[in-house]
Amino acid sequence: MSDAFVYTIWILSFALEVYIVVRSLVHKDFRRYLSLNVFVGAMAARDVAAFFVQMRYGFTSLQYTYTYYYTDALLTILMYLTIAYLYFEVFREMHFGRYVRGVTLLLLAGTALFSYAVVQSNTDHLTGRFVVEMSQNMYFVGLVLTYLLWVAVFKLRETRARLVQLILALGIYFSATAATFAFRNMFPSMHSMAEFMGPLIGALLPMAWAYTFTKVPENARLVPQTLAGVVSHR
């Protein structure tokens, strides 16, 4: 994997993450998309931290591995909060907010307890295959949650185009990341290919969200059912 490629993707991801947060601030949307902005801001902070650790210790160092996987676990928890926010938005008119908050807290507590239990019983091999398996499972849970959210969008005939695109982009990100970790878990000898895919997939989400916030107006409408059927065009 060439350094130029990694740095290009890194800079692109970081620039887009900063763009999303700054754009929200400028358009006074920051509070409206709070959890999403916090998550994107955390991604940018992680990029900076990983960059400096990599500069100082190198890609193959233990320090970089720890930084990458620990920050990734934290980001996954923030991403669960983002999914919870999207659930809240989809179910808002049905006044399910209280239940969504309750389920989110349960999910967070459950994930934390499960992670703690797994870490406690695997303290002797926290790196290597174990972290890959752990990340694979966490991203897969995210994918399942996003898929259920997409089903809810479909059934409830949610028409907010911006919300629909934010959810679909999240689905693409979770499924691609879970597949990459699963591939890496199945074929540990081909880890370089998975490492090549990692930064590319990491850039997908900020790219797609930046596109959505820039090109899709807040009041734009889209019927999700038309995405599943035959689209007749002009």
């Binding site: 693409i172 499924s175 691609a176 597949a179 699963a182 090109k215 889209l222 038309t226 689209v231 065009h233």
Partner: peptide, 24 residues
């Protein structure tokens, strides 16, 4: 199993996403 399910979900999300961009 996770790999197969994730790839299937990825294809589905990607098609819906592309169509949502085209629809606009």
């Amino acid at each position: 199993l996770i790999f197969v399910v994730s790839i299937a979900a990825f294809m589905q999300f990607f098609v819906f996403y592309s169509r949502s961009v085209i629809a606009a």
